[in-house]
Every structure is written in structure tokens, then in C-alpha cells.
Design a protein around this nucleic acid. Structure first.
Lengths: 191, 191
DNA sequence: GTGCGATATGTACACTTGTACGTATGATGC
DNA sequence: GCATCATACGTACAAGTGTACATATCGCAC
């Protein structure tokens, strides 16, 4: 059906873009894809599509898909841990620390389904990939150290576990806990 | 390079087996694969290999891979919930119930990395698949009802979350909590 | 300016996947 | 006995995957 080919239209080649920091954007795009489709659905092509770059750009910037995942999870853990750190550092007495923990859980919980999913994806991936286990452990250690600014080591560890359970349970439920219920649970534990 | 073909050796066809209950075994094999390789690594072929059946058997017994996953997770939740139920039913006063909870966590935790991984895989899958969300919610509701045999509703819910956090944190750590530490955390919460 | 090396782009290829489907076989009801 | 139908078995195929690689382009050091 096609007539004689138009002289120059073999492939509409994209204009080349000057794009420093593309590697960073790819890592962020990877986090978006992981949150949306899971590690299972995270492919070179999907990340490239989200970041609006050609497929070849993935293999140029990363030597393998596993490298992308590791960098993405590392960045996410760093970002969440920093917030945790800052909140605990801003609290100047124990009472303020308790309020900070409550705010943290309520915000993580109500604010960001995305962060929870990323955390659980990381946990699961780390259960199988030793390289990622180091990332989760560094993260957990950092959270505990932040809590230890205000609580003894045993309390910090138990409180950290309680926080995890409250967030996880709440996020998975059709009937998530209210900030008031979170406050109640934490106060009950801390006595 | 091959000489004249040997008269009858085109394909070594497997002997047909009489195998009632194959469907059940396939569901169990699916759970094994999920625990070993994750939902991501769960394929028709891998399940068939583990169960030692030909690929075609999968498409005969299940209309899709999602059906296999749903049945597998349902079975797993049922199995874990039954144990939970039984332990709580066996406790005849509150003190015994507390001990039952401690035993439950300690055994889940020390005993079975597999069960934890399956639970987390289910949580994650449920976050994306509405059909699976019903499975997790039925499971959580059943656990809470079991706890409510001995504790008020608020306590049951909070305790359930604490249990989840303790198990998850412990299983992911290089330094899992000892039964004594579990006991300490639960007693502290329950006052 | 100008070359060159870092980066961007497109594409090929071998491999795995889910699923459909044709064929074979034997347990069971008659 | 024997026919039949549920079940078992093998295989084909299109779609998607990770990765390698050839080629194009332009910012920047000189």
C-alpha cells in the first residue's frame, strides 16, 4: 500500500538531549517503578519509559539490573533514615521524643503508602540478596541509634519493633489506625 | 554427523502416572517456590519442576498463574491461622494466654523463616491484588478474634501489631531477639 | 577552533515466560 | 469387555526480557 518511500524518514530519531544527572533521575525512576509494580515488575524498559530515556541509556549507566535495585534501595533507606534522625534530634526531652515517634508513625502511615511498600519490597529483596541485607541492617541500626538518644537500648529495640508492626498492620488494613490509636498504643507500651 | 536414525527413539516420553491429588501437590509446590524464589520467581515451569510434573499439567489444573498464587496464599493463611487459633483456644486463663503468645512468636520466629517470608510475600502481593487483600484481611481478623478470647478488642489489635513487628524485626536482623527478649517486650506491653 | 572522549540513541539476539492446544492413556461406570 | 471422558503429556508460539554493541552527537579541555 505504501507509495515510493519519502526520501528521509527511515526512523524518527530522537533529538539528543544534554542531560547531566540522568543517572540520578534513573535511580529515582527505579524507585517509582518498584513502588508501582514491585521488584517483579521492575525492568530496564519500564524504568527507561518512566524516566523518558531510551533503553540503551540503562545499560550505559548501570552494568546490571541488580545494580539499579541496590542503588535505588540504598537511596530510599538513606532518605527515610534522615527524616527519622532529624525528628529525634529535634526532640529535646523524653516527652517530646514520644510525640516525635507518634508523629513519625502517623505521617509515615497516613502520608505515604509508597514508603511502606518500598520498605517491604526492600525487606523481601534483602531476604534473598546479601548485598541488600547490608542496606536494611544499616537502616535498622541507624533508626535504633536515633531512638537511643532518648531511650535505653532495650526500649529502643522494642519500640522500633512496635513502630514497624503498627505501620505495617495499619497500612494493610481496610480500617487503618487513627493517630489517636497510635498514640494510645505507644503510650501504653512506654508506660 | 548423526548416522541413520535409530528406529524408535524420537522422544523418551514419560510414563503416564496415575496421580490423584496432583492439584493439591501443585499448590504446595507453589508455596515452596514462592518461599524460595519469591512471587517474582514463581513461574509455571518452576512449580512444575518442583512438583515433578510436565508443564502442561499446570495449564490443565489452573486457568492462570494468578489463580495458583491465590490458592497457595489462601492455603498458607489458613494453615497459620489454625495454629494460632488452637494455641489461644488451649489457654484457659489470661496468664496462659500470654505464655501462648510468647510461645507462638518464639516458634514462628526461631522455627520458620519460611512462614515469615510467605507472610511478607502475601502482604506485598495483596498491596497490589485486590483478590489477595481479602485473604490477608480474613487472616488478620481471625488472629484478632483469637486474641479477643483473652484480651479486650483494643489490646488485641495493638498486641497483634506488636507481634507482627517483633517477628518481622527479629527475622530480618542478624541478631534476632531471644525468647527471653520476646517475653520481656510482651510483658512490658501488657503491663 | 578543534578534536576527543563522555554520553545518548537505536537495534539485534538469545532466552524465558504464559498460555493454547493436539494427542495419548487408563480408571471407571456400564 | 469396552467405550468414554477426565486427566496426563508434549510442544508450539507470540510477547517480553536482559544485555551487548554499533553508531551518532556535542560539551569541554586545550
Amino acid at each position: 500500500m505504501s507509495g515510493p518511500a519519502t526520501p528521509r524518514q527511515p526512523v524518527p530519531r530522537r533529538p539528543r538531549r544534554h542531560d547531566p544527572g540522568r543517572r540520578d533521575r534513573l535511580i529515582d525512576a527505579a524507585l517509582t517503578v518498584i513502588a508501582d509494580r514491585g521488584v517483579a515488575g521492575t525492568t530496564h524498559r519500564e524504568i527507561a519509559r518512566v524516566a523518558d530515556v531510551p533503553l540503551g541509556s540503562m545499560t550505559y549507566h548501570f552494568t546490571s539490573l541488580e545494580e539499579v535495585l541496590a542503588e535505588a534501595f540504598t537511596r530510599h533507606a538513606e532518605s527515610v533514615a534522615r527524616v527519622f534522625d532529624e525528628r529525634m534530634r529535634a526532640a529535646h526531652d523524653r516527652e517530646a521524643a514520644v510525640e516525635a515517634v507518634i508523629a513519625l508513625v502517623s505521617d509515615d502511615l497516613l502520608g505515604s503508602q509508597r514508603d511502606l511498600i518500598l520498605a517491604v519490597e526492600l525487606y523481601l529483596a534483602a531476604a534473598r540478596e546479601p548485598a541488600l541485607r547490608a542496606v536494611t541492617q544499616a537502616w535498622m541500626a541507624r533508626s535504633r541509634r536515633a531512638l537511643e538518644r532518648h531511650f535505653d537500648a532495650t526500649t529502643a529495640r522494642e519500640l522500633d519493633a512496635l513502630i514497624e508492626g503498627l505501620v505495617l498492620h495499619s497500612a494493610l488494613s481496610t480500617d487503618p489506625m487513627t493517630p489517636a490509636q497510635i498514640r494510645h498504643a505507644i503510650h501504653r507500651y512506654l508506660g
